[in-house]
Design a protein around this nucleic acid. Structure first.
Lengths: 375, 375
DNA sequence: CGTACGGGATTAATCGATTAACAGGAGCAG
DNA sequence: CTGCTCCTGTTAATCGATTAATCCCGTACG
């Protein structure tokens, strides 16, 4: 095999004394060239070590890359800490794969870092060679989302922010779901309730979340879920400040445990802890075990998301179709890509919104308030 | 904001009566243009809706994309079924992110499908705009691996195949680790042992794996692990056909359960089941519970990989540093990219091999052979 | 006063393909 | 024999940037 210098379509064409067009066709549209020429091209290409059209050049010329970008808020390592993202991701992957698109992971990096990205400067979506973007659960005024829209790319937002005027959206009615959950908890008789949520703002903060902070949260999903809980609690007369809310920057089991500690230290009498993400709840379960608290006899624990692990743990939670969420996001984007292809103006279309069902899933981690604790 | 037609460097340059070079510099090397010109360019760009240099064009011209490809054998949905891949992936993501590279997920699709990819024809690595590729656990003569090497891309192979002449490698001594595990099991007194492994060939097959089939397996890791087990068993006189091996195409909990059923139906007297992947073992644990078998009193169960879930499940297994594996793979590739950059001939270098430690981790799923069962 | 220097901008060559439009010739119907 | 269509293949315009090599010109220095 005599390779050597870089090969290109042109090199091959010259060597065979044919036009580059023919070589290109030999690779891309077998029906456009004679079998004889085609195999001559292919054979020669192989012999000189030419592996086919350069992807970058093809991309430039064609005006598309067949790649879909998937934007995460955090470093990817964090994204995979929570099974919710993983299952979602699998769904996206499935949809994209079926549509012949590859997936480019775009990690925005942990926001607290100040700049948007460790290395380069601008938003991660500005310089990525993608045909469209799925934005997963980012804060309200996310620069990466903005950049993608600014570039005129088709964009699908998942979960949050909830109302971007130029992007499709898929998510759930977090508020209603949270309200249902709250009702379930109060129906069990609980009145002294703790709540653990994930970050409400982009700066690294762990600690109690005041009512004001809850309202001004930059993360729509947590904001809504909190609001829903508060509404539900209010129905039985629990005031907004009666609810002890602890905020954790990272969504992880460890955070859950820390959250429980924090809440119990401030309000040792709580009989139920509602976590606004299953990972947190699982961490609470661990921590409760270590403290010798029995669930649900001594403490009721609830989650949100219903990740695969939760079933085994017997966690009462809000079920949402995570895989489907990914698939829907993929589908939405692929449809946009399809309608953009013909060249017609993309502008006119209204953003679409897919509302996924979320139903409360009662398992053994929630139970009636302990007798002696009833106020 | 008057956008309209597609904008380009040239458009902007013309509008401002400056050269394209200056516009390019305004975006890429602020120090190369006066502040005044730079802000003029940026402002005008914004006003006409030009979002910066086209990624494809930049890629073509620069000759690199700053994207690393990650090749999986299966559909991504399957890849995420096994936490082992997820943790590995997180490691890769971490390394790449730190190096300023994005990650392109390349799913080869389930091999059984016949063709290499559902939609398009060729290997997935042939047309991807990447600077290098990490190939995760693919069969011996994988076309996607071959294509990447053929293109002259830097390639890092993870796990399998074990000895590609033109690719770096990171993995473990699966055989030795498996041998250790076998010793542990026989030391507990077990002599009638079942084994559940994942696919040995690329065609969809579920069922017993004969000794010949084990040897001719296309998947090096399973082959090695099986060989290691057999060696370990042989030390106490258990013959190769004395070991009941059940093969499952998919690595999932469900497969584990089915595997247990199959083994017990053929050899109801086994006292231990060794699974060649933790997911399988977790499935066996589930299934054993449903059958009313106590672990380890009635049945010893072992795994391989030590995924996060296994600790909680008390699974005896072989621990391997999954996250580190990903990070090492990333590091190796980034190093190759760095040394390729200066333009010097990449050819000369020998492939590097990183051997990761794998140590047996004994937990409560393995115990002495039941009294009454001792042969 | 002549000139070497250097910041700031430009010129122009290239990166590697895709594809619409077109040309030449074979085969066939009228 | 003319006119068409079908098949192959070619011409040539483009896609949108990057960057080495230059050029211009005001300045500081000998």
């Amino acid at each position: 095999m005599g390779r050597g210098e870089r090969q290109s379509l042109a090199t091959v064409a010259r060597a065979l004394n044919v036009s580059t067009a023919s070589v290109s066709n030999a690779f891309n549209r077998p029906d456009r060239v004679s079998d004889e020429l085609r195999s001559r091209v292919l054979e020669h290409a192989r012999s000189v070590g030419y592996a086919g059209p350069d992807p970058a050049a093809r991309q430039l010329r064609r005006g598309r890359s067949d790649v879909v970008g998937l934007v995460f808020t955090d470093d990817l390592a964090f994204a995979f800490e929570d099974q919710a993202s993983v299952v979602f991701l699998a769904g996206v992957a499935e949809a994209c794969g079926a549509g012949g698109r590859n997936l480019l992971m775009l990690a925005a990096g942990t926001p607290s870092a100040g700049s948007t990205r460790g290395t380069s400067g601008g938003p991660i979506t500005a310089a990525a060679a993608v045909d469209g973007v799925i934005v997963y659960s980012v804060p309200d005024a996310d620069p990466h989302l903005a950049a993608a829209v600014e570039r005129g790319l088709p964009v699908v937002v998942v979960d949050q922010p909830r109302d971007h005027p130029h992007a499709d959206w898929v998510g759930l009615d977090d508020r209603a779901a949270a309200r249902d959950l709250a009702r379930h908890v109060v129906e069990l008789g609980h009145r002294r309730i703790g709540v653990i949520c994930t970050r409400l703002g982009t700066t690294r903060y762990n600690g109690p979340a005041s009512p004001e902070r809850r309202l001004s949260a930059t993360y729509a999903v947590q904001r809504e879920r909190l609001a829903g809980l508060v509404e539900g609690f209010a129905e039985v007369g629990i005031g907004e400040d009666g609810v002890e809310v602890e905020e954790r920057f990272l969504a992880s089991r460890a955070s859950g445990g820390e959250g429980l500690d924090a809440i119990l230290s401030r309000r040792p009498d709580v009989t139920a802890v509602c976590c606004l993400a299953d990972v947190l709840a699982l961490g609470v379960l661990d921590a409760a075990g270590r403290r010798g608290l029995r669930v649900p006899q001594d403490l009721t624990v609830t989650g949100f998301d219903d990740i695969p692990e939760s079933a085994g743990a017997g966690l009462t939670t809000v079920h949402q179709p995570l895989g489907l969420k990914g698939r829907e996001a993929g589908r939405l984007l692929l449809e946009r890509l399809a309608e953009a292809a013909p060249g017609r103006a993309v502008s006119g279309r209204h953003p679409r919104r897919v509302l996924l069902p979320a139903i409360i899933q009662v398992r053994r981690s929630s139970g009636p308030v302990p007798e002696r604790s009833t106020s």
